[in-house]
Design a protein around this nucleic acid. Structure first.
Length: 517
RNA sequence: GCCAGGGUAGCUCAGUGGUAGAGCAGGGGACUCAUAAGCCCUUGGUCGGGAGUUCGAAUCUCCCCCCUGGCACCA
């Protein structure tokens, strides 16, 4: 049985509504997942939501509903957005589900039995108003805690800790051994530097008196587990991992067939969450080095250079953009205007610019003018004539380069290759001047030859575009009057049958008119 | 303060030793199948600043400035 391509995204926190950064990550994962489906791989794409924790508990309390209801509403917003964006996942992770809870508790119990989790007391300053311990970061320059914290008292609290530092040397050696543990490579350097400075263990619990919206520790009912073992475990709990088996080999085949995963995360949660805590957790529960997940770290969309944040009031709501421009326009912009791993500036004007230039004027118009000419000159029937088309070679190059850049997750580069090919086709039309050929009966073959090649080129474009713009690709197929099932093998030149009858042209990407923004 | 990324044409970016590039925007042209789209040509940059290595530096070295992220310090 062939290995499954397993891809995950970070699970989103159900404390507030999704923004453009959430959408970017999921679309990126979706595009990579679709590329693997195109290659006929088995694909298991896991995404979901993180529903526990203090902020959820607080937000729920503020709106006067139980946490379970509060998260249900926000969860729906996320799920609804993914549907609108055509994000096609295979499994949906919700951390309040029973199967997840079982795995989390099973892992905690095993680590506790193995002495990897221990109980300890810690003392510090505690803000009663904010319900949290304060660190030195919260102090004012004069060393005092500001008035925003209300009454601050010295408190002692018992908690459970995971022996993180015990695995530091292992993590260093793992990172030295595996050069592509993290992509891009400069992120791996960043992680390596951070690990070297690692000291101390990881607090993994909260007493229920402070936080009860979480998963109870199996060995102490006075506590729930805090963040890490809850959220990070989703990557295996929803893939069929069984906590009762301590070695990977004894795991059920549903899990073994999938793992390890390619995990897509934002640069903000590489250090320490995924790069340190998660890798060490996996190591501690018995995952061998060659079964560690690969971390693909993406950058952020900034707004005029500034970080997007709720407090700055500059959140971009993806739902609004979808309503204004459509899902495909947003997908295209998010995939084309940022280099994987880098940051980019988000701009609605730029979205419109790229949509009009690439999709409407270049690709959409190529389809439209090709079909129009085929109907005008040949009643919609394209006929094989003459020898090889110059486009055939170009298309083969395109497919090769497309596969190359996708192997490196450079979706933006794949798009720019596609656009280059589209321009090649448009140039080819200008050079061949079919409107002149049509007036000369002696050059009838030349006209057939080029119309057929253009239709074939569009068929190839549809196949390759399908991972980025699934709906548009289907519409191209519909207009070409061919099957809208996509496989990479179909991107080879020569799939269009002789005497094929093309469908009617309908503008695929109507231009976005920019009277005023 | 430490680590990392970035500072290249109006905008978004590519380019890691050999005469400054792409897309978009701007300007001009020929055409007309097409979503007033497409195609061709073209304006435009002291490559953040300074010093150095070199026959030659956007590219290597050093210093400095600015932006971004992480970590630390600041009690």
């Amino acid at each position: 049985m062939p290995k499954t391509f397993f891809i995950t995204t970070a699970i989103d926190y159900t404390n507030s509504a999704p923004h453009i950064g959430h959408a970017y990550e999921k679309v990126l994962a979706d595009v990579i997942a679709r590329y693997h489906r195109l290659k006929d791989d088995n694909v298991f794409f896991l995404t979901g939501v993180d529903q526990h924790g203090q902020k959820v508990q607080q937000s729920a309390a503020k709106t006067g509903v139980p946490p379970s209801e509060f998260v249900k509403a926000i969860t729906q917003k996320f799920a609804h957005l993914w549907k609108k964006l055509d994000v096609q996942y295979d499994e949906w992770a919700e951390t309040t589900s029973d199967r997840h809870k079982q795995v989390v508790q099973g892992i905690l119990q095993r680590l506790f039995d193995a002495g990897q989790i221990y109980n300890d007391k810690q003392a510090g300053y505690y803000s009663i108003r904010q319900e949290q311990f304060l660190t030195d970061k919260e102090r004012n320059p004069d060393g005092q805690f500001g008035a925003e914290w209300g009454q601050v008292e010295f408190r002692e609290e018992e908690n459970y800790y995971f022996r993180l530092s015990q695995h530091k040397d292992w993590l260093l050696s793992y990172l030295d051994k595996r050069k592509d543990a993290v992509i891009p490579d400069f992120r791996q350097t960043e992680l390596r530097n951070a690990v070297e400075k690692l000291s101390g263990d990881l607090c993994i619990s909260r007493p229920k008196s402070r936080l009860d919206w979480g998963i109870e520790l199996p060995f102490d009912e006075e506590f729930v587990t805090y963040v890490w073992f809850d959220a990070l475990t989703n990557y295996i709990s929803f893939a069929g991992y069984d906590a009762a088996h301590s070695t990977l080999n004894s795991q059920p085949s549903v899990f073994r067939d999938k793992w390890p995963a390619l995990q897509i995360i934002g640069k903000d949660i590489l250090v320490p969450a995924h790069g340190i805590y998660w890798l060490i957790m996996l190591h501690a529960i018995g995952f061998p080095d060659d079964q560690m997940p690969q971390l693909l770290v993406h950058g952020w969309w900034n707004l005029s250079g500034a970080k997007m944040s709720k407090s700055a009031g500059n959140i971009v709501d993806p739902s609004v953009l979808i309503e204004k421009y459509g899902s495909e326009a947003l997908r295209y912009y998010l995939m084309s205007d940022i280099a994987t791993g880098q940051d980019a500036d988000f701009s609605e004007e730029r979205l419109i610019e790229r949509y009009n230039a690439d999709l409407a004027n270049s690709l959409g118009n190529l389809l439209n003018r090709t079909l129009n000419m085929a109907h005008r000159y040949r009643d919609g029937v394209v006929t094989k004539a003459g020898g090889d088309s110059p486009l055939a070679r170009q298309a083969a190059d395109l497919v090769r380069e497309y596969n190359g850049v996708f192997g490196r997750f450079e979706v933006h580069a794949a798009i720019s290759r596609l656009m280059e090919f589209t321009t090649t086709c448009n140039t080819y039309i200008e050079m061949s001047a079919p409107w002149k050929l049509a007036k000369d009966p002696e050059r009838s073959d030349a006209l057939d030859h080029m119309l057929f090649a253009l239709a074939e080129a569009l068929r190839v474009i549809a196949v390759l575009t399908s991972v980025i713009l699934p709906s548009a690709a289907r519409q191209i197929c519909y207009q070409l009057n061919i099957r809208d099932e996509f496989r990479l093998a179909d991107a080879d030149w020569g799939g269009l049958p002789d005497k094929h009858h093309l469908g009617k042209p309908v503008p695929l990407f109507p231009r976005i008119e920019t009277t005023e923004l």
